[in-house]
Amino acid sequence: MNTFYFIAFLSIFFSILVITAKNPVHSILYLILTFFTFTIHYILLNAQFLAIVNFIVYMGAILVLFLYTLMLINLNKESEPAKSNLVKIAGVIGGCCFLVTIIASIKALGASPAVVLKDPSLGLVKNLGKVLFNEYLLPFEISSVLLLSAMVGAVLLATKEPKTT
């Protein structure tokens, strides 16, 4: 349990650093560390497959692409648009509203009972695969079609329109 609290503390600590870091590249690096702590959480939950997929997909691919795009954008201080006071006040009000909503919704729901996993070895690759491809085959396939449609859409956006001359 102590490990959990330590890792949870690290997750929150790094995610705060993500939003407070001045340099966007540093912020991305903190995000990587945050995702790494998530991976440890998954391992603590005995969800090895999820842990390693989080590791590969988020840390290894998505954040590399994040970093990649950030490196290509010119993030000098001069090119940053100056934020007026009005925007800052609006931001503070918006944030407060969001906080109030979240607290209210949590209060309304009440404390939920702790989730007890029926099968602790559910997270292992073999069991996860069996569940995914037997009980949840239809949602799984539909989500894959969804991803495919997203891909096709991206390709469509990227292709140049034929010249109409």
Binding site: Q48, F49, V53, F55, I56, M59, G60, L67, L124
Partner: peptide, 18 residues
């Protein structure tokens, strides 16, 4: 001897680029 060994190797490889 973890039962996702191949994926672990794969993850480490993908981290190498950092």
């Amino acid at each position: 001897d973890i039962n996702v060994g191949v994926l672990y190797i794969f993850g480490v490889v993908s981290l190498g680029v950092y």
